[in-house]
Amino acid sequence: MFKKIMERSRIKSPWLVHYDCGSCNGCDIETLACLTPLYDVERFGVLNIGNPKHADVLIVTGSVNTRNRHVLEQIHRQMPSPKIVIAVGSCGLSGGIFKEAYNVVGGVDRVIPVDVYVPGCPARPEAIIDGVVEGLSVLADKQRRPDAANGAVAVDHTNSEILYESR
């Protein structure tokens, strides 16, 4: 029974840590907007916990460069499993318009395994929320099969609002 409670609890209490890899702050503003009364993600038990050691979900915005990739790796390492990574915004997905820059490594998945991709420039809050909710199913999956390969999920941002509402 305890095991069941824990399994259920895991998807009911995703605490997130948000790391800005050098975004233009567009995606960051949208990410933080999710916490406002308008969207109120605390309904789903989501808390912005700000500390990798306490977090289950890592939200990364911005393109990864050669310097901050170490920070990103370290934050990911400091999160105890099970954990998921959500890349947010065009830059997070691929490096975006900075892709060709001399110091840019590219998308987040060049450095750490990404579970959910949320596109957009900037990504809309609805899409980010949807990304987190998608991520929870990955989290539940990981729990059942801890050594399973990462089945990455992409969120279709064009009709994200509809996706969100249909849930």
């Binding site: 050691k53 920070v71 370290q74 400091q78």
Partner: peptide
């Protein structure tokens, strides 16, 4: 054992 959180690269 985890490295302490240094808010940067430890």
């Amino acid at each position: 054992t985890a490295a302490p959180y240094m808010s940067g690269i430890a």
